[in-house]
């Protein structure tokens, strides 16, 4: 999986491309853990280029969200494709994670 990390207005934006499955979960986990450990706690993950996610991918995002929140930050999501969004809905994560329609909205939500 290809993962781009950029900074915008003090917010770290993580953009994975590909399938967020059992194979990619470790790579995503490492990336997010390193960012949080470095103190980059205003995180946005743009899932616009992710067409598939499974329970391993979800678990990685939930773990990172908890880690970021515990350190005073958060992991926010944006640009979910319809199929991917359906997984967040059936696991009710859509209600507890901060999910925004676009990257601009997600970044702006940090104020």
């Amino acid at each position: 999986m290809e993962i781009q990390v950029t900074e915008t207005k003090g917010v770290t934006v993580v953009v994975p491309t590909g399938d967020l499955d059992m194979e990619a979960a470790d790579q995503i986990r490492r990336t997010l853990t390193e960012l949080i450990d470095k103190g980059q706690l205003k995180l946005v993950m743009d899932l616009g280029s992710v067409g598939y996610i499974d329970s391993s991918g979800l678990g990685t995002l939930v773990a990172a969200m908890k880690q970021a929140r515990a350190a005073g930050g958060n992991l926010k999501l944006c640009a979910l494709q319809d199929d991917v969004r359906s997984i967040f809905e059936m696991t009710r994560l859509i209600k507890v994670m901060a999910v925004h329609a676009t990257r601009q909205e997600a970044v702006a939500s940090w104020g």
């Binding site: 499974d54 329970s55 391993s56 979800l58 678990g59 990685t60 939930v62 773990a63 908890k66 997984i87 059936m90 696991t91 009710r92 994560l93 507890v96």
Partner: peptide
């Protein structure tokens, strides 16, 4: 328990 934000164990549910 979906309310407890599980990090695993949801695969069969999905």
């Amino acid at each position: 328990d979906l309310e407890a934000l599980p990090e695993g164990g949801v695969g069969l549910h999905i």
